[in-house]
Design a protein around this nucleic acid. Structure first.
Lengths: 201, 201
DNA sequence: CAAAAGTAAATAAACATTTACTTACTAAAC
DNA sequence: GTTTAGTAAGTAAATGTTTATTTACTTTTG
C-alpha cells in the first residue's frame, strides 16, 4: 500500500493558512489551494471530506489548539492575579503577533457562521483547555480580589482589549512607526487588571 | 424619463442586510439577493457599480454612519469622564442589540480584506464623525484624569470590551437565560473606566 | 418620443466535487 | 531474492452548478 505523503498534507495546511492570511477566507478556493500547493484537487479530498471539513480542522488544529497551548505556556494558577493576567496577555500578544494567519482565521471564526458553529461545538474541548484560566478567575473571585461577575463577562473585560490591540498592531505594521509595543501592552494590562480588582487590593 | 423606484433601492439594502445577518456574508450572492428582493439582477447594477460597491456602500451608509449617529446620541464632550464613557457604552450596547445585522457586518468589516480596506479608506470620514470622542479623551488626558496612552490604545481599552459583551449577548439569545443585562453593562463599564483613570480621581 | 428604469435570459468564469486513471509501495507467492 | 497482486495515494481532466455581470429587450413617465 502506498503510504501517505506527509509533506502534501503539510503543504495543504500551510498554503491554506497563507491564502487566508494574505487574501482572506473568501478567496480560498479548493482549486486555487491545490494549484498553489502543487497538488491535484483530488488530493485534498483524500485528506479532508470537503471544504467545510478542511476549514473546521484547520481552525481547530492550527488555530485553537496552538493558541491555547501558547496562552497557557508558563501560566500557573497559583500566580498572583495581576501576574497571571499579565502572563496571559503577553502570551496572547506574542503568539498572534508572530502568527498573523492564526489571528486572521480566529477573527473569521467570530463572524463566519460556519466556523462560529464549529467553535461553539468544540466549546466543551475548549472548556477543558481553558479550565486553568476558569479556575484561576473563580479562585480570585471567591477570595474577593476579582470583582464578582459571570465568568464570560470577566473573560470579555479582561481579554477583549488585547485582541483589539493586536488588530491595531497589525494595522500599524505597514506604517512608519509601531505604537503597539510590549511596554504599551504591559501598561494596558495593568489598567485593565486594576479596574477589575476589588478596592483595597 | 422614468423615475427611480426608491422602494426597490430600499428592498436591495434591507434584503442584503437580512441575508448577511441570517446566513453570513459568504452566502450573499447578487442573484440570490435579486430573487429575495423580487427584482432583476440588472436592477442592482443600475444602483451599484458592482458587488464590491454595494457592500462598501452598505457598510458605510447602513452600518458606520448609523452606528456613529447612535453612539453620539445625547453624548456631550462636557460630560464627566465616567459619565461620557458610560453614555457611549450604553449607546453602543442598545444600538447593536437592536440591530444585529449591523453588528454582524461590522464584525465582517474587521476580518474581510474588502471591507477592511474600505474601512481604512474612510477613516478620514470616520475620524470626523468620532472627533467628539477623540476630543473628549484628549481633554481628560490633558487634565490628568485619563491615563496617558496613544488615542488608539485608549479607544481599544475603553470600548473593545463592550463589543465582546455584545458577542456574548447574541450568543445567549438562544439560551434559557440572558446574562448580559444593562446592569452587567453598567458594572463592566465602571470597572473599565476605573482602571483607565489616574489614581486619586 | 426620448431616455432612463427595469426585466428575462444569456454569458463566461470560477466553484466544489467526481470520474477514470496512474503511481508507489507492501506483502504474500513463488 | 525476485515476482506479482492488491490497495491506497495521487493525478489530470471533466462534471454540473453557481457566480458576477451583460445583452437585448420592454416598461414607465416627463
Amino acid at each position: 500500500m502506498r503510504p501517505k505523503n506527509i509533506e502534501k498534507e503539510e503543504a495543504i495546511r500551510t498554503t491554506a493558512m497563507r491564502i487566508i492570511a494574505e487574501e482572506g477566507l473568501e478567496n480560498l478556493s479548493m482549486q486555487k489551494l491545490a494549484k498553489e500547493a502543487n497538488i491535484s484537487p483530488r488530493t485534498i479530498y483524500i485528506k479532508y471530506e470537503n471544504k467545510e471539513d478542511l476549514l473546521v480542522k484547520l481552525f481547530i488544529d492550527e488555530v485553537l489548539a496552538s493558541y491555547e497551548a501558547a496562552v497557557l505556556q508558563d501560566f500557573d494558577e497559583k500566580m498572583s492575579f495581576a501576574e497571571g493576567v499579565q502572563k496571559i496577555w503577553l502570551n496572547t500578544f506574542h503568539y498572534f503577533a508572530a502568527n498573523r494567519s492564526a489571528f486572521v482565521l480566529m477573527q473569521y471564526g467570530k463572524s463566519s457562521p460556519l466556523l462560529n458553529q464549529s467553535f461553539q461545538e468544540k466549546n466543551i474541548k475548549q472548556g477543558q483547555f481553558f479550565a486553568p484560566v476558569h479556575r484561576f478567575l473563580r479562585h480570585y473571585t471567591k477570595e474577593g480580589i476579582l470583582i464578582n461577575l459571570p465568568f464570560e463577562v470577566q473573560r470579555a473585560l479582561l481579554f477583549a482589549p488585547v485582541w483589539e490591540l493586536l488588530n491595531e498592531y497589525f494595522e500599524h505594521l505597514n506604517r512608519p512607526e509601531q505604537i503597539i509595543t510590549e511596554t504599551i501592552i504591559l501598561q494596558s494590562c495593568q489598567s485593565i487588571t486594576k479596574g477589575m480588582m476589588m478596592p483595597n487590593h
